[in-house]
Every structure is written in structure tokens, then in C-alpha cells.
Amino acid sequence: MNVRKRTAAVAAPGVNGNASSDVTSLYDQALIDRARRGQRDAFGELYDRYVDSVYRYVALRVRDDDEAEDVTSDVFIKAMGALPRYEPRQAFLAWLYRIARNAVIDRARLASRRTETALTEPLAATLAANGEGLDPLARALANDRRERLRAALSRLHRDQQDVIVLRFIAGLSADEIGVVLRKPASTVRGIQMRGLRALREHLSPDDLR
């Protein structure tokens, strides 16, 4: 599969070791140490660095933006409480994703039903609607498209949802997803393939045009 990572998705410090992320993780480690000592401003800085990545993942795994806001708050509050147990051997973002994943699962267990959004509008029709400065109609269409993607994703198996969101929205590699999900990269690739196949069944043919 020839899919390039999105630049925005990898703007945050890497999940897995590469040169730049090593430097970042040293900086992160300093922040984490300060945050462990109870310095809230250090944790605030960690929040600023990672909230976009976490929110992006969460927003596609829950029903709406308000719920995404709640879950994202929960994730960082839990992370702050669990910081003494964080082991620097693993990347901080992978650790956050794992907390986020558990928070989403907990939330899904609580919610007895999920909102099913009708998949009537073709996804492709609104693919062009992207970026800032959109008129209200374009913004509405963009939101609608995201809602349909969210609804289609919600019909997949939990692991498939995780892999697709982390792969195509968060922009992680199979290896990096493997770190988050604690699965081998080959397993992640298999889940991704099955997830995409299942997702296609839940999207209208026009969405793929």
C-alpha cells in the first residue's frame, strides 16, 4: 500500500524511535520528571504538545465532539495521575494513545447504544472541502463527511477502528501502532487490511470515487 503519512499527524513527537523523536523524548523526559514532582506547568506543556494527536484519535472513536472533549480531558487527567507509573522505555505518545484507547473502550461500554449516522451523502463529494476559511455550507459538508466516516468506523471491530484511525488519521506506521496496541506489526497489517475491507462495505460506492 502506498500511503504517505500526513505531516500534521507526525508533527507531534514520534511514537517510536527516530532521530528527531529521540531528541524530543529527552525534552519530554525532562517535562515528565518535572510533572512527576508536581509541577503543573510542566504537565501543561506536555498537554500542549500532545493534545492534538490525542483529540484526533478520540474524536473519530466517539460519537461527537463534545464526547471527544470529555474523553480527551479524561485521558490527560488519567495520564497525570498515572505519571509515576510511566516508564520512559516507551514513547510518551504511545502511552497516551493507550490511555486514550482504554478511555474510549470504557466510554463505549457505558454507552448502551451508539448513534448511527445515515450514510447517504457520498464521501467523495466533500473531499475537497478542507482547510480554514470555508464558507458555512462547506464547513457543514465537511462536518457531515466526518460524521459519516465516524459512523462507518463505529461499525468496525474495535481493533480495526484503532488501526485505521492510528494509521490514516494519526499517521503512525504499523510498527508504531504495534507499540500502542501491543501487537506485532504483521498483525497490525492484517487488521488494517480487514478493517479497510469492512469499512468499504459501510461506505457508499460514491464515497470511494
Binding site: 500500500m1 500511503v3 500526513r6 500534521a8 499527524a9 493534545v51 492534538d52 483529540y55 484526533r56 474524536a59 473519530l60 465532539d65 471527544a68 480527551t72 464521501l123 467523495a124 473531499l127 472541502a129 478542507n130 465537511a142 463527511r145 466526518r146 466516516l149 485505521i164 494509521r167 490514516f168 488519521i169 479497510l196 469499512l199 468499504r200 461506505l203 464515497d207 470511494l208
Partner: peptide, 13 residues
């Protein structure tokens, strides 16, 4: 399909 997902507007905070 992957491109469609990728290029769709990511949830923006």
C-alpha cells in the same frame, strides 16, 4: 479508500 480517509478533514481541536 485509504486516501479518502486520509484526506478527509481530520477532527480539528
Amino acid at each position: 479508500l485509504a486516501r479518502a480517509i486520509q484526506e478527509s478533514e481530520a477532527p480539528h481541536l
